[in-house]
Structure formats: C-alpha cells, structure tokens
Amino acid sequence: MPDGFDQFVTDRLDRLLRYATAMTCDRYLAQDIVQEALLRAQRRWGRIGAMDAPYLYVQRMVTNEYLSWWRRRASRDVASPATTIAALTPPVGDPAVHHAERDAMRARIAQLPRKQRAALVLRYYEDRSDAEIAEVLKCTAGTVRSHISRALKTLRADNRVMEVL
C-alpha cells in the first residue's frame, strides 16, 4: 500500500505544477520550487499528512518558496521575447484577435508584482476564497482583496494603453 505522501503526490503533483507555473510564469522555476517543497514536505509528512488540508499547506510552502526565492534574486525577469513580441504587436486579423489578446494578457500578468500575481492565480485559477488566499499568503483577507483589486486595475489600465496604441 502506498504511503500517504506517495498518494498525495500522485493526486496533487500535476495541479501543484500548474499552479506554480501560473504563479511564476516560468515552468522550470516552478519545477524547482515544487520539487523543493515536496522534498521538504516528505520529511515532515507525519505532521503535514495529519492536517485538515495538507494540499493547502503544501501550496503555501510552494508559494513561500517562490516569494522568498524572489527576495534573494534580482528584481525581475527579463521580458522574454514572447512577451516582447506580444507587447510590440497589436492584435491584427480576425481569427487571431482573441488569441493575441490572451497572449497580451499573459504578458501583462507576468509583469505584475509577485504577491498580486500569486493572489490572482489563487483566485482565478484555484478558485480560492479570500480567507483561503489569506492563509496561503499569510496576510489578512483585506490585503488579499487589495492585491486583487490592484492587479485588476493594472491589467485594465494596461488594456486601455494597448487600445490607444
């Protein structure tokens, strides 16, 4: 019989990787931090596995790993050429419009401050409540709402700029 940790990994690894990838906008960094968090969780599985919501806890480990990784690094990624091209190229041509808009949105999300992006991903990808997001980000529900409303404001403001261009 597989132990609890193996079962957890089987059930949740894919979702964790997707979450981390959406949060970091970097699949390899996501791989690193998920791997790191799971290795640490494995050593303490006796305690984590007994919790009410082990997934939420591990998700918090993954998120912390990213936020603290950032603190130790230079302040942002170079805009990738994909981002660059999306920013340079206004959407043209009918069937391509929606796709281009989505790519441009992806590029704008990638530029958000990390906590705002983490909050956004928890809300719109993981469908978490304010209280749950607050628990993952270790802040109050009020701060969560403020992160999300700021992020939305930025994304909308950018939208207008794009339209003018």
Binding site: V9, D14, R18, Q35, L38, R102, L120, Y124, L152
Partner: peptide, 29 residues
C-alpha cells in the same frame, strides 16, 4: 476582463513541465 484573465492564467498553467520528470527526481531523493 476576468474571463480573459482566467484564460491567460490557464494558458500559462498549461506550460507546466511533465509531472513525470518531477516524480523521477522525488523518487531519486
């Protein structure tokens, strides 16, 4: 906007690496 955000995040999430590579690393310790 929110729908577009959802789609964009979903698209980003879809870039995740194959879980198999992570599994192999975990089993190798």
């Amino acid at each position: 906007d929110e729908m577009l955000i959802r789609e964009a995040i979903g698209e980003e999430a879809g870039q995740a690496v194959d879980p198999g590579t992570v599994l192999a690393a975990l089993h190798g310790g």
